[in-house]
Computed example of a mutant assay.
Amino acid sequence: MAEPVFNRVLIKLSGEALMGPLDYGTDPGTVGRIADQVKEVHDRGVEIGIVLGAGNIFRGLSAAADGMDRATGDYMGMLAIVLNALTLQDALEKRGVHTRVQSAITISEVAEPYIRRRAMRHLEKKRVVIFAAGTGNPFFSSDTAAALRAVEMHAEILLMAKNGVDGIYTADPRKDPDAEFIAEITAKEALQRDLRVMDQTAFALCMENKLNIRVFDMADDSNINRIISGDRVGTLVTT
């Protein structure tokens, strides 16, 4: 296997990526496969940070959150991300990968508070750092949290794992059979064409800090390893 072309990466996993075949919730088999992929890359000496979303849990809470104050709903989402982080941590630890969960909201009984220098030290010691609770603020998405943590950690690339979509298309390929695959695009063009890869705040952070983004399908168990080896997988968003 080729030498890794990246030494430090930030992986953004949507909550939906943890659902597997379920309508909502967490599928243990799917989480296990994700943990296997992370372990393979970790064993190659790559430093890994992970930011999670909460769509898998919040989808089941959507009826309860209907009509709720936006800030309250966002805090519920942050707590749901912590649940996902602990689930992934358990799967990785069972595979012998040392991890730390750092939460942007204080839950000292189950996670460290987010401290940038401590997180960077964990990465240097080859621990996988799982960043939970988004940015700790309402009105900011987990995509923005991923871009923010990637920039703070000096990650060399942001890996956006999608659920069942192998990159960026001109339209949603699950709805439009004529949608065309885009192998490479600039972040500015993606914004202008309203290609909803991530929200505008996340895009702005990546553009300002010259952080490239690789969008790929998490369903293929070899994809992360191939990206780390320098293969062209999914769509590259350049800044």
Rank of each mutant, 00 (worst) to 15 (best):
R8Y: 09
K12A: 10
K12Y: 13
G15W: 04
E16Q: 01
G20W: 00
D23R: 05
D27H: 01
P28S: 03
T30M: 00
A35C: 03
V38E: 04
E40G: 08
V41L: 10
G45A: 03
G45T: 00
E47H: 02
G49R: 04
L52K: 00
G55K: 11
R59D: 06
L61K: 07
L61D: 04
S62T: 04
D66P: 06
D66A: 12
D69Y: 09
Y75D: 11
Y75M: 14
M78N: 08
L79A: 08
N84R: 03
L86K: 00
L88E: 04
Q89E: 08
Q89F: 15
D90I: 08
L92I: 07
E93G: 01
E93Y: 03
K94M: 15
G96S: 00
G96T: 01
H98A: 13
S103T: 09
I107D: 06
I115W: 01
R121Y: 10
E124H: 11
E124K: 12
K126Y: 11
R127H: 05
V128I: 10
I130G: 15
F131A: 04
G136H: 12
P138M: 10
P138W: 06
S141D: 09
S142W: 05
A146M: 07
L148V: 15
E152S: 08
M153C: 13
L158K: 03
L158A: 05
M160Y: 02
A161E: 03
D166T: 11
G167P: 07
T170W: 10
A171K: 11
R174Q: 03
R174T: 09
A179V: 03
F181S: 12
I182G: 12
A183I: 10
E189F: 10
A190S: 08
L191N: 07
R193M: 01
R193L: 00
D199A: 12
Q200T: 13
A204F: 14
E208F: 04
R214D: 04
V215G: 03
F216K: 07
D217A: 09
M218V: 15
D220E: 09
D221A: 11
S222V: 10
R226D: 00
I228Q: 05
I228R: 02
D231Y: 00
R232K: 05
V233K: 03
G234V: 11
T235K: 04
T239Y: 03
